[in-house]
Amino acid sequence: MEAITPFLNANQQISVDIKTLREAPDFKAGEVDIDIRNVTPLFLNQEEINAHYLTTYKFRLYASQAYVEEKGIPQSIHDLDAHTLISFTKDGLFPHTYEPQAIKCKQHLIIDCPLAIANAVENNVGIGPLLPHIARLSQQSLVPILHNQLRQSLNIYYTYPASLTQNRMVQDFYNYLQSLPEDFLKGRTHLLAKRPQKINPLSDF
């Protein structure tokens, strides 16, 4: 909200409806007008959809200082067997992991919400994937874990149906987001805007 508030204040003729969508929206059904998320190459190649690169999210593993003082710092992937791992899915530590990662652990906590993972890590529950700037914003001292061995980068795209290619609000909103400092683009955001000219801005990633 901190990132998009100046845009909304400058364009008070629109209102927005923020949605959290697990799957890519149905543009044809008018579910949203703009979707912001990590997308598959197959999705990018669809002629009826415009997709523009927006930013890259770089996930790394972190643990709290209190956790590593009690459990120690793993020196290799194999050391993770002795630790509690917090992951996005049962198959992978990181979000949108299309190929299951060959990481086994005795204790496993699955949370599909980035902020909830951050809270779990801060409360000494275990080792979990966070965006580095989220780790820096933490009120506790978080310790990087195996940064050179386990990481994931997700390219985030601003997508919308080709039918809105000439829509000024859609283009202006993309240009505005591109102009922001990198760390401002840190939220999961879906917008469906209601406007006089019948436009919907935006979804998730």
Rank of each mutant, 00 (worst) to 15 (best):
Q13R: 08
L154C: 03
A162N: 06
T84E: 12
K104F: 15
F173W: 03
Y158W: 09
T56F: 04
H133T: 05
A24P: 10
I4L: 14
L8G: 01
N148V: 02
L54H: 08
A102H: 15
T97M: 13
A135H: 12
G187N: 13
A82C: 11
Q101G: 04
L191I: 11
L150Q: 11
N11F: 02
N11S: 01
Y174Q: 01
C105W: 12
H83R: 14
A135C: 11
E48P: 05
F88K: 07
I77F: 03
N9G: 01
T55P: 03
E48F: 08
N200E: 14
P95G: 00
H52G: 00
Y158F: 15
K198I: 10
Q178R: 06
L42D: 08
V170I: 13
N167K: 06
D81R: 13
E182F: 08
I36W: 10
Q171S: 08
I86Y: 13
I156K: 05
N124S: 04
V16W: 09
L61N: 11
L137T: 10
D35Q: 04
T84C: 10
M169A: 06
S15Q: 14
I18T: 12
L137C: 12
L137Q: 15
S64Y: 12
E23H: 08
Q13L: 08
F184E: 15
H108T: 02
E70N: 03
P114I: 02
P161D: 02
S179D: 09
L177T: 01
T89G: 04
Y62V: 01
D172Q: 08
T55Y: 08
P6L: 02
A29I: 04
Y176L: 07
Q65D: 12
R195T: 15
Q101N: 11
I86N: 09
H108V: 04
I73C: 05
P41R: 00
